[in-house]
Structures are given as C-alpha cells and as structure tokens.
Simulated scan of single mutants.
Amino acid sequence: MFKKGLTVLLMLLAFSASAVPSDDIAHILSEQEAAWNRGDLDGYMQGYWNNEKMRFVSGKKFRYGWVETLAAYKKNYPDKATLGHLKFTIKDTKMLSNYAAIVVGRWELTRAKDKPNGVFTLLVEKIDDRWVITHDHTSD
C-alpha cells in the first residue's frame, strides 16, 4: 500500500512539475499579445531575454540583442495602425529539459487594410528563475 501511494505521489509531482513550465510559457505569449494590442512595444519585449545574445530571425535577417530587436520593432511598427491586433496560437510546446522548451505556433495581425500572418518557433529558457524567449524564428 505504501509503495503504491508513493508511486502515485511521484507521478503527480512529475506531472505538476512538467505542467507548470508550459503554463508559464503560455503566459509569456499572452502578456506579449496584451502589450502589443495596447501599443506597448517595450512591454511586448519583456517576454524576451534582455541580453545581446538574444536572437531574432525573420525573413532574410538575423538580429542579435534585445535592444536591436526592440529598435527594429519600433521602426517597422511606428503606430497603432501598423501594429493592428495580434493573436498568437500555440500549436505545441515541447519541454527539452526543466530549463528549456521549444514552442511552435501561428501569429496573426488584424489591421484595417490587411491581415498578415505566419508561423513561429521559439526557444524559451529559464534564466535567473524566469522563463524568457532566447531565440525567435518568425516567418510569413
């Protein structure tokens, strides 16, 4: 009886430990959506690792660093009309370890004149006890 109870307890602990990171990661994207939709690019960037080694890949460009990525966002989305309304859809989160995950999904902007959309793959890592996006590959 004790052995069976211990096995169930260990299974529950393993499940709760694995479920929490994906919830934390989904929360990052939810917070990014909310910041984007209120026109707050500085807030949007809080989901990213604030480090010069953070990497953003889109189109034919590689960007390195939080500051450079924020500057590119501000240049490419100078006002609320170009920002539009952002919607993320997470398709899958694969935990690679207790400190790293791959997230794949779709993004969609709804604007007055168009509705651009595409896919993304994120490497999300737990750094200094906080989940952050360290690599973002986004495409149309």
Rank of each mutant, 00 (worst) to 15 (best):
H137Q: 11
A34R: 15
V8C: 08
T121Q: 08
L6M: 15
L109N: 05
V20P: 03
T138C: 11
N51M: 06
N76E: 12
K75N: 10
T121C: 10
A34L: 12
S139R: 04
S58L: 07
A14P: 01
D23A: 15
D114R: 06
L41M: 10
Y99K: 13
A35G: 03
G84T: 09
Y99P: 02
L12Q: 06
Y64S: 08
F56Q: 03
L123M: 10
I25M: 02
V103W: 01
L122K: 05
R130V: 13
K87Y: 05
I28G: 04
A35Y: 05
D24Y: 09
M54K: 04
M11P: 01
Y64W: 07
W66C: 00
R38M: 12
V67N: 08
I133R: 01
Y99W: 10
D42R: 09
S139K: 03
A35W: 02
G65S: 01
S30C: 11
I127H: 05
E108T: 11
I102Y: 08
L70F: 06
K80G: 00
N117A: 12
Y48H: 07
T82A: 11
S30K: 15
D129G: 02
A72Y: 11
K115R: 11
V132W: 00
I133A: 01
N117D: 12
K75V: 13
L12M: 10
W49M: 02
L29Q: 00
W107M: 12
R111G: 03
K61Y: 04
N51C: 08
N76Q: 12
H135C: 07
A14D: 02
G47E: 05
R63H: 04
M54R: 00
L9Q: 06
H137C: 06
R106Y: 12
M45P: 02
L96F: 09
V119W: 13
G47P: 01
L86E: 05
E33T: 15
T138H: 03
F15W: 15
T89Q: 13
Y73V: 10
Y48Q: 02
E125N: 08
G65P: 05
I25G: 02
I90K: 01
T69K: 00
L12N: 06
L109R: 10
E31Y: 09
I127W: 01
L9A: 12
L70E: 08
L70H: 06
F62M: 07
T121A: 12
K115Y: 00
F62G: 00
V20T: 15
F15C: 14
V67E: 14
S18K: 13
A101P: 03
M11E: 09
M45W: 05
N76W: 12
Y99F: 12
E52P: 13
V103G: 02
N98H: 10
V20Q: 15
A35Q: 05
A72P: 00
L29C: 05
G105Q: 11
